[in-house]
């Protein structure tokens, strides 16, 4: 069935100067699926996200979202149809309480079209949403200054900004990286919940073990090229993947 394909990326390329950051990449994603994107540093993971979500202009290639060609769309319009993304480098309003960071997306036309947008007080909605992603209301965490939040909360804040848009799909850029083991462990159920709620996910990650608790398939990038695609087993056993990760000795990835 092709009509449940939510995202189709077709031969997308991008060079910066002489560097081929993304080289002729294609893949498709069905509604409700979770796709992992992995690859060494600088292999083009963030760039492919930027190309899909319109933040960087493509040199060539097409992107279809729910059957519609969104290749030339502006970022806000892509977000407006429910394709949200997080940023690897998060920059919240440091001097404002966490919940105020959720107000701009709640102010967006997309949120206002939905039932949630009509609830009235956006601050209250923002605090409810933050509670859903693990900001303990009783400990008044949603009221803490965003600049004083530990990294784990910032990552959740970034996810929450996406959830405020009631997205159908979220592309996450390294939600786990930089977090301690225990923070990652507590983050996994949240991602599983998003999946249960029917949100299609793309997760760019370095932590493969945690990634594959959630994602059942992944693509591997190296120097902008897709070198492998498939289930976790297929990827772990792919010689090209082992090669890309320093001849298979990268314990960071394969432990």
């Amino acid at each position: 069935m092709s009509d449940d394909i939510i995202l189709k990326v077709e031969n997308v390329s991008k060079s910066f100067g002489g560097v081929k950051a993304v080289d002729n990449i294609s893949f498709t994603l069905r509604r409700g699926e979770v796709l992992g994107i992995i690859g060494p540093n600088g292999s083009g993971k963030t760039t492919i996200i930027n190309l899909i979500t319109g933040f960087v202009e493509k040199d060539s290639g097409k992107v279809y979202y729910k059957g519609e060609d969104i290749s030339e769309w502006q970022p806000h319009k892509i977000a407006d149809v429910g394709l949200a993304r997080t940023f690897q480098a998060m920059r919240p309003y440091p001097t404002l309480p966490a919940y105020k960071n959720i107000i701009p997306p709640l102010y967006s036309p997309r949120a206002r079209r939905s039932a949630r947008g009509k609830l009235g007080d956006r601050s209250a909605v923002a605090i409810d949403l933050l509670e859903e992603v693990g900001f303990e209301r009783d400990a008044r965490v949603p009221y803490k200054l965003a600049g004083a939040l530990p990294l784990g909360y910032l990552k959740r804040l970034e996810l929450c900004r996406c959830l405020a848009l009631m997205p159908e799909m979220i592309i996450c850029d390294e939600v786990f990286s930089g977090l301690s083991m225990s923070e990652i462990v507590s983050m996994v159920p949240l991602m599983e919940k998003l999946q249960r709620d029917g949100i299609t996910l793309i997760m760019v990650e370095h932590r493969l073990r945690e990634l594959f608790k959630i994602a059942k398939k992944a693509i591997v990038l190296n120097f902008g090229e897709k070198i492998a695609e498939g289930s976790p087993d297929e990827i772990f056993n792919d010689p090209k993947v082992k090669e890309a990760y320093f001849g298979g000795e990268d314990s960071y990835v394969f432990k």
């Binding site: 970022p75 806000h76 949200a84 701009p104 997306p105 900004r161």
Partner: peptide, 17 residues
């Protein structure tokens, strides 16, 4: 404020900068 400090987050929040 976002337009001033964080254009990317504004765009990603489905707001037309």
């Amino acid at each position: 404020r976002g337009v001033k400090d964080n254009e990317l987050a504004i765009k990603a929040s489905a707001l037309n900068l």
